[in-house]
């Protein structure tokens, strides 16, 4: 669980999109550092050289002409334009607009609620079952209709997003109650989940490992506790897990309840932990 590489700087990146974002962040910080150091050196120099002392008088002519600041200013504008046009716009467009083909990707639905995540896989038919609000209860947090032929083989995974490595993932995010934010630090993925809307995000992992899902938008008293698990597996591992889930689903389908087999352990709310 504990990742060795977390520290006081960017968390490890295992996303195909992450490198460009990290690169922009570091370019910006180098620029900021240079500018700040420049200003600071100038400021300290002024503070020492132009301190009030006997024999030193202010130059009140006001005619001193400075051209350097103008060039600095123009330089800043050019830099900002470059970072907009060559960094921010293309990255944003790639991350938020250029979605991979759904046929080639693994599509999952992620439903957020106070204070838990439910990941919904379409099953082997690749089609999601219908969701009905009246079916929502403790064991069926998204209201999946098991009567629906498409929904029979769907897998609901509480608080855990398992994905195969090196495959594009499209996560369709929805919220049942308030605004949450789906945050995968190691994937450089962050997206508000607005109730009443379904917002898709996509990403592709380059390494396997066990990581976390965080909620990055204040969602109530248990906001901190809204931590999910994010496991990137090899293709074989993922398939094994998937088949295991389907098998246990089949075994339980003889039960009369329309609910699902996986136990929903609502993530410990604050009141329980007390």
């Amino acid at each position: 669980m504990e990742h060795p590489h977390y520290g006081f700087w960017l968390p490890p990146n295992i996303s195909t999109n992450g490198a460009e974002i990290d690169n922009l962040i570091s370019v910006l910080h180098w620029f900021m550092a240079v500018l700040f150091v420049g200003w600071a050196v100038y400021l300290v120099y002024c503070l020492v050289r132009f301190r009030e002392r006997p024999g030193h008088e202010a130059d009140i002519s006001g005619s001193a002409h400075f051209s350097l600041p103008k060039y600095v200013e123009i330089g800043i504008i050019i830099f900002e334009a470059i970072s907009l046009i060559f960094f921010s716009f293309p990255i944003w467009s790639k991350v938020k607009k250029d979605f991979p083909n759904e046929a080639e990707a693994l599509v999952v639905r992620v439903t957020a609620e106070q204070f838990a995540w439910t990941v919904h896989y379409a099953g082997k038919d690749g089609k999601f079952g219908q969701l009905k609000i009246e079916l929502i209860d403790g064991t069926n947090p998204v209201g999946l209709d098991r009567e629906d032929p498409n929904g029979k083989d769907d897998i609901l995974s509480p608080n855990t997003l398992n994905i195969p490595v090196n495959k594009p993932i499209i996560a369709k995010l929805a919220s049942k109650d308030v605004i949450h934010n789906f945050f995968l630090p190691v994937m450089r993925v962050k997206q508000d989940i607005i109730p009443g809307m379904t917002v898709p995000v996509w990403f592709q992992a380059t390494q396997t490992g066990k990581f976390e899902i965080g909620c990055a938008q204040l969602c109530g008293v248990g906001h901190t506790q809204m931590r999910g698990f994010f496991n990137v597996m090899s293709q074989e591992e993922f398939e094994a897990w998937y088949q295991e889930e389907e098998k246990s689903l089949l075994a339980s389908s003889t039960e009369p309840i329309s609910g699902k087999t996986l136990k929903i352990a609502k993530i410990q709310t604050i009141k329980e932990s007390k």
Binding site: L10, E20, I21, D22, L24, I25, L28, H29, F31, M32, E80, S83, L84, F87, S88, I91, W92, V95, P185, R188, V189, K190
Partner: peptide
């Protein structure tokens, strides 16, 4: 600056 650019804002 990094917050005003959407791409770097994704992480921050």
């Amino acid at each position: 600056l990094p917050l005003g650019l959407t791409a770097s804002d994704i992480h921050l």
